[in-house]
Simulated scan of single mutants.
Amino acid sequence: MNTDDTLLLSQPALFTISQMPDLNFKHISNLTDKTGIIQHALFAMPNRKEGYCIDDNARALLFAVWACKNNKRDQITHDLLLVYLSFIHYMQSEDGYFRNFLSYTMTATEDRGSEDSFGRTMMALGYLINEGPSHLLTRTAHGIFTKAYPHVNKLTSLRGIANTIVGISQIIKYQYPDDRKRNMVINLADKMVAMYKHSKSSDWHWFEPILTYDNAMLPLALLNAFEVTQQDEFLTIAFESMAFLESKVFYDTFRPIGNLGWHKQGGPIATFDQQGIDAMAMVLFYQQAFRLTGEQLYLARMYKCYQWFLGDNDMGLSLYDFSTGGCADGLHTEGINLNQGAESTLAYWISHLVVASTLSA
């Protein structure tokens, strides 16, 4: 990141809701059936051969919570929320863990999903409990969350831990004070701090020796941990690690770490393929940073990352499809991936709702 880029990102951006696309959840509705949201698409058509996953249904639940909050009279998103929550309930095993993948023929392909999918599910449930549109939905989500909670302290995956911290932090806000859950947040955040200190060197300020996907979720988790514990070390490492990430992804445009090689310590930074979940994670981080500090520079950076979806990127191409309401699966060397899967479409709409709510606050 050069001096001009630093200057650009330190100033508030002139950005208004009028510059954002109108709400259009048509593609999300098309991807969703009575079971859940189908994870992949063949262009704009649901690809039923690929079935469902709890990762995307958790993201879809988070989307629906915020869409309902944005428009309390929107029956469509309320109905979608019920579908996604029901899917998560169905995928929870008796032991409290979650299965991740489900075929279109209703066959679960594993006994237990990844820790990453567990964390994303706990995060979405936490937001539903804290910000959900009805008491009955809150109670349902709380029951699922409580059944899974005994496994939280066993987590070892960075992203599983990070997403779970965000989810538990939402629960604490809902039923403040909650010293037991606050202590759990401290335990989990301490795990992240230990990983950070183990990996950190003079020129590498990150939690592991590689930058991969969903990177901003890691400092975001520590911002959430700071908010509910007021432990300064969490705040310090959150901003220190984010400054390092910013030095790797901000150029003339926002450039997420490419998944064709990622960025290993001491190695080159992969430019492509860029994915929407990375832009979404940045948007979520900057929203939280602005909430905690009130500093306008975080708004500028949030807008910059959001506009990546709309064409402020290396290719100058909009990944968001105004005609369908879907979002391309990634930005490649030859252009955009024309498939509009659940992950990318939800990444766009979650980012959209976060930015819109911040502008209207």
Results as ranks from 00 to 15, higher is better:
16 T>V: 10
306 Y>R: 04
295 E>P: 06
215 N>G: 02
211 L>N: 07
311 G>C: 11
231 Q>S: 03
54 I>S: 15
28 I>N: 03
20 M>F: 07
301 R>I: 01
196 Y>W: 06
97 Y>S: 08
349 W>G: 05
18 S>H: 12
24 N>C: 08
359 L>P: 07
330 G>S: 10
314 D>M: 07
153 N>D: 15
349 W>Q: 08
22 D>A: 14
113 G>I: 04
155 L>P: 03
343 E>K: 04
18 S>R: 12
180 R>H: 14
35 T>F: 11
10 S>H: 11
326 G>W: 05
353 L>T: 02
340 Q>S: 08
31 L>P: 06
14 L>A: 14
253 T>N: 13
59 R>I: 02
238 A>P: 04
257 I>K: 04
299 L>F: 15
21 P>F: 10
334 E>P: 00
294 G>M: 10
69 K>S: 10
360 S>Y: 02
169 S>L: 04
70 N>Y: 13
185 V>G: 01
56 D>M: 02
111 D>P: 00
129 I>V: 15
285 F>K: 03
62 L>K: 04
185 V>C: 01
82 L>E: 14
136 L>N: 12
39 Q>K: 15
39 Q>L: 13
360 S>Q: 15
18 S>M: 02
204 W>P: 05
162 A>D: 03
28 I>E: 07
322 F>C: 00
63 F>L: 07
336 I>Y: 04
67 A>R: 03
